[in-house]
């Protein structure tokens, strides 16, 4: 490990410092990413092609710099999958943030969740991947999509522009420049800390992480190990998690059933209101006139 690290520095770094990535490079990449995000966000200054190209270039440069650490004859064959899943997850995340239509944002979030589940599988966390797909992509996102559809405003069918039927709050973003400054400054700091003078930390061994907890002949995968770990070491926390789920379910029902004063009266008449005169439901002269029906073939009633 030490020898490999020093070899890497001798090959890669130009100065006498032993950063894994030069801080100036990280700074420049984060600035490029910030500018690209400002261009991509919905608003009057939006230019998606330029922003997307800039973001792609910045991501490609960062990817190549990081890829340098994994160069050489690959001992493990999961490297390409890591890059594919990471690129899909990050592109999906960018589209979640920048797409003006909330439904498409939710669908791109499903893409991001699936790609992160792929990353989890690469980390020998199969149960976490399955739980992520079931809970996030299956349950939470369905709830989001339902709420988006419940809260959608009526769309004008004649409007064919790309932003047709969208509210103003979806098409104009709030302070994109300042937000990008804050966010990408934070990204620079985080990446700098991650790629600081630390050594690259290798994976422990080819076995799953659960192998250290159980004797080897009893291990059937990390799922069993997680179950035993949860029910032996985290018993109280697990019960508390169930309690929290129950409480939030009850709370969600209570919140959603609450009447909003001044709104519901408008839509639901409180008592039966009669809006028209009673008319027979069909042409049978003996039929009983009913309130609230209209018979198109009915001859006009003689006025009193």
């Amino acid at each position: 490990m030490l020898g490999a690290g020093s070899t890497l520095q001798a090959v890669a770094d130009t100065g006498s410092t032993n950063y894994l990535i030069e801080p100036m490079v990280i700074l420049l990449l984060c600035a490029a990413g910030g500018v690209a995000t400002v261009l991509l966000l919905p608003g009057p200054k939006q230019s998606p092609k330029l922003g997307g190209a800039l973001l792609a270039v910045a991501g490609l440069v960062l990817g190549l710099i990081v890829l340098r650490f994994t160069a050489g004859p690959a001992k493990s064959d999961i490297g390409p999958y890591f890059w594919i899943f990471s690129v899909i997850a990050l592109c999906g995340a960018v589209r979640v943030v920048t797409h003006p239509r909330p439904v498409y944002s939710a669908l791109y979030f499903v893409l991001t969740v699936l790609a992160s589940a792929g990353l989890f599988i690469l980390l020998y966390a199969e149960f976490m991947a399955a739980a992520l797909v079931l809970i996030y992509a299956g349950a939470i996102l369905i709830t989001y999509v339902f709420v988006i559809m419940l809260a959608a405003s009526a769309q004008n069918p004649g409007d064919r522009s790309p932003l047709a039927g969208l509210a103003e709050c979806d098409t104009v973003s709030r302070e994109p420049f300042h937000a990008a400054c804050v966010g990408f400054a934070m990204m620079g700091v985080l990446l700098f800390v991650i790629f600081d003078k630390a050594e690259l930390i290798p994976p422990p061994s080819p076995e799953p992480a659960g192998a250290t907890v159980m004797p080897e002949e009893e291990v059937h995968g990390s799922t069993q190990s997680i179950g035993q770990y949860l029910f032996q070491n985290q018993m109280v926390n697990l019960e508390l998690a169930g309690l929290i789920l129950t409480v939030s379910m009850v709370g969600a029902i209570v919140i959603a059933r609450r009447k909003v004063s001044g709104i519901d009266e408008r839509f639901e008449p409180t008592s039966e209101t009669i809006s028209a005169t009673a008319t027979p439901v069909n042409d049978d002269p003996h039929s009983i006139p009913v309130y609230g029906t209209t018979n198109p073939r009915q001859k006009s009633f003689p006025e009193h």
């Binding site: 490999a4 890497l8 050489g72 943030v97 990446l191 690259l200």
Partner: peptide, 20 residues
């Protein structure tokens, strides 16, 4: 040469996603 996916790779992906 390095031939493995280090912890830093995953941390970088997580950090970038958090910032987005």
């Amino acid at each position: 040469m390095m031939q493995f996916l280090a912890l830093q790779h995953y941390l970088a992906v997580g950090a970038i996603m958090f910032v987005i």
